[in-house]
Nucleic acid binder design. Structure first.
Lengths: 133, 133
DNA sequence: TTCGAGTATTCGATTCTTCGAATATCCTAG
DNA sequence: CTAGGATATTCGAAGAATCGAATACTCGAA
């Protein structure tokens, strides 16, 4: 149930992660705070573009900065979230292939649990009870 | 280091998550396998659109299906990944505000560790050693 | 075989994203 | 105050994503 309530907000958050340059920026910030000039050296992108991506990350509340003279030191303002997302997206889980039988078992399990607390729309009986195997 | 190697691939993966309807679909599939018709009842979207989003999720290797007669039963083919991403994006970490002092400490730490294994480009000396506080 | 239910794909139109160039803003040293 | 470095914002063009409508495909029952 965590997501079901505000999928739009969650989508917004994840969208902020979904760009190669922004991921690279976040990656760099995991290593430690950096100013825009530092990032210019580290990334294959122009200053203006980096600033634009930083603006996106700021709006998503993934980064913030502390002004140090003329320089802005960017840092992760939700470091746990960023590290965990990067870690998760980086590791690759093996893809599973499921059989019709397994799936029908799942459907039966789900049907049973719905019987107990019948919140359903009482529409047609959710096909799948018995499949023509 | 997990991400640094293929930020584009990671961005692609995360982009597949970054849409309210697709998140809702994944959410439903966490509860159990479903066919397109089931999803039509559960989501505020047309059949064609749901199929389009399922195609995106399939290309990202987040879902797959098993054909059961004329029906296609969709399921998560990397359930762990999906559950973990949904969970992560759902919980909200408090936003931290960092002070200039903390940041400079971090920078010094980073500088030290770079001294030990000097892999840097030998460019200008990465500003921040001493900031004009 | 034909039909119909279930699902996928194609096609445009609309909207969003991204980028570089140009420009504006902010800050500090002189 | 003024210049110059650092960063942000605006603008316009190019490309990508999204959606509904229409259409195509596929399977099993009759």
């Amino acid at each position: 149930m965590p997501v079901s309530l505000e999928p739009r907000a969650v989508a917004e958050l994840l969208k902020a992660f979904s760009h190669a340059t922004r991921l690279a920026i976040l990656q760099e910030l995991v290593a430690g705070p950096k100013c825009v000039t530092d990032m210019e050296e580290l990334l294959p992108a122009r200053q203006a573009n980096i600033s634009q991506h930083l603006a996106v990350l700021r709006h998503a509340r993934l980064v913030d900065y502390s002004q140090d003279g003329a320089v802005r030191c960017y840092y992760l303002c939700r470091p746990r979230l960023v590290r965990d997302v990067l870690e998760l997206a980086g590791r690759d889980e093996p893809v599973v292939k499921r059989t019709a039988e397994e799936i029908n078992l799942d459907k039966e399990r789900l049907a049973k649990s719905l019987e107990r607390k019948p919140r359903s729309k009482a529409g047609k009986p959710t096909r799948g009870g018995k499949a023509s195997i």
